[in-house]
């Protein structure tokens, strides 16, 4: 029941210093497309970039991001804090992140429920964690440190996973609910991740969706996924971000909106990029659903 999470025990932190993201569609933006976006100035409600791609001292990346920031609301999405890792978030990395957020004042900052660093080695992947009381306590401690250091609330993204652990004693949605209740962070509801995870682990996506702390949603992600046939003939979904959003995901998105109300909605595309018009068309579909699903 969503109402179970209706009261927060932690103090809410400000989401950002420049107001919230508009509850409309935005686009994920890779640095190599920054300049063409500045030329085309598409009619889009916000852009989202990966924090780690802009952790530099100067030069073209920061220059063009500043110009984009002048005209569009910005969301910064981290991929390197390793919140689910055994070690606390790296102090140097947090300092660089704090500097980036200070510089660009994004309306939103989000990260993943995953680990990516172990013993100082960075794996560049969002790796799944065991859901048990030990890792719950650790994740909460890490998020507390991050929110305190950044002085803002983060949105935590539900993962896309391909393996599950025999040792997990908590349900993923329940784990996320407890993290949010204890830390006061928000939820970045990635509907494609939800779809991928549920298919890969043969779960009911609607039940999983309803079990999430939907009152805490601050943003929604949509993306395309790929079918992968493993060597032993199993069919798995991969969070590939390399194609259009799947029909099933649009359906889940519509349902999610009826439960969360209107939310800033990001179309993520990281590979096999189509012409800008196609990406804008997907954003328009999301914008239409933001109205239609809520008035239906």
């Amino acid at each position: 029941m969503a109402s179970e999470y209706g009261t927060q025990t932690a103090m809410p932190l400000p989401a950002g210093l420049s107001g919230a993201l508009p509850a409309r569609a935005g686009l994920g933006l890779k640095p190599e497309h920054l300049r063409s976006m500045l030329q085309h100035r598409p009619d889009i409600s916000f852009f989202e970039v990966h924090a780690e791609n802009f952790m530099v001292e100067g030069g073209p990346l920061l220059h063009f991001l500043h110009r984009l920031r002048d005209d569009y609301p910005l969301s910064v999405h981290g991929v390197g804090l390793s919140i689910g890792g055994m070690a606390p978030p790296d102090a140097d990395h947090l300092t660089r992140l704090a500097g980036l957020l200070e510089r660009f004042q994004p309306a939103s900052f989000s990260e993943h429920l995953a680990w990516s660093t172990h013993n100082g080695v960075f794996f560049n992947d969002l790796l799944p964690l065991v859901y048990d009381p030990v890792s719950l306590a650790r994740v909460c401690a890490h998020i507390d440190q991050i929110q305190e250091r950044l002085g803002r609330r983060l949105l935590l993204e539900n993962p896309a996973t391909y393996v599950a652990y025999a040792g997990s004693s908590l349900d993923e949605a329940d784990f996320i609910g407890q993290v949010i209740r204890r830390t006061g962070c928000g939820l970045l509801l990635d509907v494609n991740n939800l779809h991928v995870t549920c298919r890969n682990h043969q779960r009911d996506p609607l039940a999983y969706l309803r079990a999430l702390p939907l009152h805490a949603v601050g943003e929604i992600h949509l993306a395309g996924c790929a079918e992968h046939t493993t060597a032993d003939g199993g069919a798995l979904l991969i969070d590939s971000h390399d194609r259009a959003v799947a029909e099933d995901v649009w359906g889940l998105y519509c349902t999610a909106l009826t439960l969360t109300g209107p939310q800033p909605t990001l179309i993520e595309r990281d590979a096999n990029l189509p012409p800008l018009e196609e990406q804008l068309a997907e954003a328009q579909t999301a914008d239409r659903m933001l109205c239609a699903c809520l008035t239906a």
Binding site: Y162, A166, S168, T230, G233, L236
Partner: peptide, 15 residues
Amino acid sequence: LRESCPADPAQRFAI
């Protein structure tokens, strides 16, 4: 890793 269907854990881990 949890035994699961479809695809065994080794195939999943390979991803």
